[in-house]
Design a protein around this nucleic acid. Structure first.
Lengths: 226, 226
DNA sequence: CGGGATCTTGAACTATTTCAAAAGTCGTGG
DNA sequence: CCACGACTTTTGAAATAGTTCAAGATCCCG
């Protein structure tokens, strides 16, 4: 569970920079670490799924597109998490939001090593759980509940009390993750601010006044109070 | 891929009956087949996830509930598919829609046998793909697109031409799977009927005039035409 | 300081929901 | 065999959450 492809220290998700950086390419190895700039593709829909990836540092968005350009962000992947599980071809596109380091390992190699294979299995279980959670969010939650859920999720392990977040994603990405529009995200954040649940020192920073309270909003345990 | 826990012939998903039947219990074995009546629990949220299940016959719904009763159906599982992947406790509830046969295998046993373990891995990859697909549906598709997607999905392998479906689910279940309400499902079906894309001989039967055409609607390749 | 982006806010619109009632469907029992 | 009651489905009308369109505000760099 705490085994890792690489032994880099866990780094926090970095705030996004709006300036793309350069890539150091490195092809044809069964395992490699690569440095990506902000907003760069790790793989695209249609690519063969030969490798499994791990975010060593930074943040990766996994998304799918409809023919007309509508996007659904499937997963926001932070340091330590694996992504890119697929049987044959990728149906998703993966791209960094900020300068990131991604470790990629040949899938066949990964599945022959018992230790790594085990880690992959665990990560897949987690991925399934995570996707089920987002299905509930997209299918049944209101806008406030969705935004609250995202914020609570982003603040990681914090269970209670206040927390400060440096959003690793833009409003547009929040919208495409939560099945909403940019405008609704913005309005909802200000509503949360007005109700005192969060503070917004600037657009990229959220101060959660009380994580437990926001968590209640996220689960819809708030509706009947009003 | 065609390996199976058991060697029962693949049976079609049966139309739902509204009368519950009896169960033959059978506890404490690492692997067993069990017969379930319609609308019976296979497992509930909170149960320890000790076994992996396969639908041998019938249809199983996997769903999650919000505190206030809102339900999201995560997966509609037909014969031959595995379900119940979870690391520790189930967060989902699984229940039959119709009289069904479910084969259950101890998780640890499953993962030690290479053949079975491999099948489980493949099924998990498929599950992830499937969940990503439904996330796009829930996050970004319109009501017509959602219903069309479900119908195309339910008619299995048929790629083109007409197809007849015996719906294994009620309107309420369709609604909770597609993130809509019963009424919207009903209205959308009649809209599809009026536009000639489907026929509705009775409430539980759908005749798809042309699967390929419905598939286009499902993908949103229809919006710009109007 | 100016240009281009992101973000916020406002007002009108619309897809879907909600509430309400009618129409089918199905099994039961007289 | 038909009538009754319970349930699911369909349809209608009104309400609403969220979208769309449009305009400002803010921020970020050069």
């Amino acid at each position: 569970m705490d085994a890792s492809f690489l032994l880099l220290p866990d780094a926090p998700v970095h705030a996004r920079s709006r300036k793309p950086e350069t890539v150091l390419p490195d092809e044809g190895v069964s395992m490699h670490i690569r440095r990506y700039g902000a907003r760069q593709r790790v793989y695209s829909a249609g690519d063969p799924a030969r490798t499994i990836h791990e975010v060593a540092q930074g943040c990766v968005l996994v998304s799918r597109y409809l023919g007309d350009g509508r996007r659904q962000i499937i997963d926001i992947v932070g340091p330590g998490r694996l992504f890119g599980f697929a049987s044959d071809l990728h149906h998703c596109t993966a791209e960094t939001t900020v300068a990131s380091m991604v470790c990629s390992l040949d899938r066949n190699v990964a599945l022959t090593s018992p230790a790594v294979s085990n880690r992959v299995h665990t990560a897949m279980l987690r991925e399934i759980d995570q996707l089920q959670t987002i299905a509930v969010l997209l299918g049944r939650k209101t806008a406030i509940e969705r935004v609250a859920t995202l914020l609570v999720g982003l603040c990681g392990g914090v269970e209670d009390g206040p927390a400060n977040l440096s959003l690793p994603v833009t409003r547009s990405e929040m919208a495409d993750y939560l099945g909403l529009t940019i405008e609704t995200i913005s309005r909802t954040l200000t509503r949360l601010k007005q109700s005192g649940l969060i503070g917004l020192p600037d657009a990229e920073t959220v101060r959660i006044t009380n994580v437990a309270r926001l968590h209640h909003v996220a689960c819809g345990d708030m509706g009947e109070a009003a």
